[in-house]
Design a protein around this nucleic acid. Structure first.
Lengths: 309, 309
DNA sequence: GCGTCATATATCGGGATTGTCATAGCTCAG
DNA sequence: CTGAGCTATGACAATCCCGATATATGACGC
């Protein structure tokens, strides 16, 4: 028996039209009807079929006076042809879905600040409108998230706006203002202390040195000629911070919205006016946002307006 | 947000080349390398990529000075492109497999005669050589199998060759000769009876009227001016026949190979010279045999030569 | 037989497709 | 700031692709 070499249908002259044609012929059981259905003259259809058959080296349909009937090869090939077409349809759907932002993934890097209220609300709103979008949240410091932003792993970073590191050409969009407050557990002995100096005797929880909040806090101390508290913990984990606050007499600087929603914490009447309050998103300057990221940004914007009071 | 209409990639000018190109670019991370790999100049590759992007309406790769990197759309689309190509490869394999007879299905209709020895041996030989071929066996009478042969449900019919019903343009190929013998259980009171007339007093099992063997048997009786036995059962089920033979004093006409392999049956010394002995295959005249059927036919041929005694 | 229905073949012209070469533009590294 | 390494673009030629029209061929039913 003559063994034929395995076929390569990709390099050759097989066209997608051929697949469409062949399935149409199979569906209608007739070259003529298939031709009508595809809006072309019968000779074109016949020739197309012969082309495929020549490419494959086998007869796909046996011609009869009452139409055509598929051969073994015909039925087999039509199966695959249908599969290919289905795959292409899926590809089309996928692309339009992604382009319309109905589908896709958005990865949000988040700093401590906005994590509490704005982000959950925005995610909820986004999922309500576009259930097809997958949201990935990545917690971290600004410095650790910026590289992710650059290499495309993360679409946008949400949090207190840091001084822009212009080397990477990042863009920043302010969303709302949220004061930073000094807080302690309710019942803390310094609950009514209204000067920074009066708090120096307590242990403090400060943000890591890399963060901009830390830098600004240091400025506050410096402006009043005070040293940094000696007894201090450096920490950004909100769960750890909260536990420490509740179980000890520590003092910390936290975003207002974090404090407001926690009855076990109180804020101390020490003004921190010089600390910047702007919370917003940081975006990669170069790359275009994916549609899904755009949608997320929209929701961050609208949700942030509801926070303003 | 602007909603794009769902894409139809089948009607448009998307070509399989585009899919190959896009995956090549994704694989090499560079239009230039992809071009080399596909043996064409870089401008051609660049233009091809732009074509796909225009067809899809999105950017698939972001161009960098160090090559290109896929966008969300790029990675998504490449996935589908790969799937399509895999499907086409499978299609090619399937077709060549079928064409080479490595794969596929052969449906054999079988009459009583050859079912016993030739068919099992042939199937065994075929499966040993081509494990990929599926064999379907359909038992029945010649008349019930011919329509299957015509409509393509059955590839070939194996059995005693009937007078060809030429309306359907069937072809017949004789394979070997196998006498028909009159048989009864061993120990039957007529074990040594050597004339047909001497057996008329016993009950008989005869084939159905539709079968050619029945016609020929009737000729045998007629030639000797004998009536058909009055006490008779008409049956083609070999299991039933055998049980009847063993449990009663019935007499039956069976192919030699069926008797030879069954020690509980004996053949009666009554010559049935005029009964045709040829066993073979009947094929549809019009349709071409599938490769799998051809292979089966080859094995039937070679196996039948080993039976000739 | 003859009309009908279906497929096969021949020929032809417009136009899209697919390449090439040459060259321009851009970005990063040294 | 210059060269290396990519991609983008423009111009142009050959081809092949694809459609239509006209006609032939073959099977079936009446």
């Amino acid at each position: 028996m003559v063994m034929t070499r395995a076929l390569d249908l990709l390099g050759g002259r097989l066209k997608l039209r051929h697949l469409v044609l062949v399935t149409a012929i199979a569906d209608h059981g007739s070259v003529l009807r298939a031709a009508e259905h595809l809006r072309l003259a019968q000779p074109a259809a016949t020739r197309g079929l012969r082309e495929v058959e020549q490419i494959l080296g086998v007869e796909l349909f046996t011609r009869g006076p009452r139409g055509v009937t598929p051969t073994v090869f015909g039925t087999a090939f039509v199966d695959h042809a249908r599969a290919v077409q289905a795959e292409l349809r899926r590809a089309g759907d996928r692309i339009t879905g992604l382009a319309n932002g109905e589908t896709g993934t958005v990865t949000v890097g988040t700093l401590l600040a906005a994590t509490n209220v704005l982000l959950p609300r925005s995610i909820a709103a986004l999922k309500a409108e576009r259930p097809g979008i997958t949201v990935i949240v990545r917690e971290g410091t600004f410095d650790s998230l910026v590289p992710r932003l650059i290499d495309g792993d993360t679409d946008l970073v949400l949090g207190r706006l840091n001084p822009i590191d212009d080397r990477h050409g990042l863009r920043q969009i302010p969303l709302y203002d949220e004061p930073i407050l000094l807080v302690a557990r309710s019942g803390h002995p310094a609950s009514t202390t209204s000067t920074l100096a009066g708090l120096l005797g307590y242990p403090w929880i400060l943000p890591l040195e890399q963060t901009s909040l830390r830098q600004e806090l240091e400025q506050v101390f410096k402006a009043q000629d005070l040293p940094l508290p000696e007894d201090r913990v450096e920490c950004t984990s909100i769960l750890t911070i909260r536990s420490l606050l509740l179980q000890t007499d520590m003092v910390a600087a936290l975003p207002a919205l974090l404090v407001r929603s926690d009855p076990q914490l109180v804020c101390l009447p020490v003004p921190l006016a010089s600390v910047k309050r702007s919370v917003g998103v940081t975006l990669p300057g170069s790359r275009a946002l994916t549609p899904a990221a755009k949608v997320m940004l929209d929701h961050l914007r609208t949700q942030s307006t509801t926070l303003e009071p």
